[in-house]
Write a protein that binds this DNA or RNA. Structure first.
Lengths: 141, 141
DNA sequence: GGGCTATAGTTGACTACGCAAACAACTCTA
DNA sequence: TAGAGTTGTTTGCGTAGTCAACTATAGCCC
């Protein structure tokens, strides 16, 4: 186990060492897990993750190779394909989630009070692509 | 002139097209301009910009080549060298600043009210490396 | 002094991601 | 229904920035 993260880089390093995921990969799984039918058009995923379409292609290449995401084509529009979270992907996300969200929270707690975190969450939640959801983590203290 | 930026990427592209600066290069000039004697140890600059030491080496390579920053060695500790903003660097920063800070502000204004921006500025100003300074831009409306 | 350990900085190899260009498929309009 | 424009995706190439390994200096303690 790594020492407590004090930067985004350390957060990323922990995620990588412990789960073999990059930050973007984690976010992709996270966003897909909360999407209808565990799937999203690649172009929508791009917007959510603030990546370009080519970035998404590359990112999903990796996730598809690992088996966490499947490429599903759309029947009504042959141009589009969906990124579909697999069972393995769901599981991977669950493994990675609690530690990671906990680390993020404690990173915030190093700098902000509970009230301030709430205010920030509220404000930043207004940003496009933000998910307006409370996500509790059962194993967190 | 580019259309109004709606993402950080577009902000970066504008900065690059209009002034030949990357986001990090701009930030480096910005931070140096507010430092004592317009200089900072490379390692301090790294912390401020949330870059690694090697990242700073690469970044300053470019800025030194352009003549915006000079490498100055420390007389009392031969390990350390300073990044020293030059006159050209000051000038470059001034040219780039107003347009850029204006763009950032309007990007925020797309999503937040004045009050919210103030709250965010206050909260985010607590983060390490943040400069707690009001920086007015004369040509801004 | 000679040997530790810590700190500052550089370099080589690698990676994530952007941009521009290409291509395919869809949707208009005439 | 041919053409034009739009949208979704991929690919080639370039670049910013990471990590790991290294060198050089500083400060410590015997």
């Amino acid at each position: 186990m790594r020492a407590q993260a004090t930067t985004k880089r350390e957060l990323a390093a922990a995620l990588h060492d412990e789960h073999g995921l990059t930050m973007s990969a984690y976010e992709a799984l996270y966003v897909l897990a909360r999407a209808d039918g565990l799937r999203l058009k690649r172009v929508e995923l791009a917007e959510r993750l603030v990546l370009t379409p080519s970035g998404i292609t590359r990112l999903l290449e990796g996730l598809e190779a690992e088996g966490y995401v499947e490429k599903v084509s759309c029947e009504t529009d042959l141009r589009v394909s969906y990124a579909q979270l697999t069972d393995a992907g769901v599981e991977k996300l669950e493994q990675a989630s609690c530690g990671h969200t906990g680390s993020i929270r404690s990173l915030f707690e190093q700098h902000f009070s509970e009230d301030e975190i709430e205010t920030l969450a509220e404000l930043l939640g207004k940003l496009p692509g933000a998910l307006d959801e409370d996500q509790a983590c059962p194993t967190d203290g």
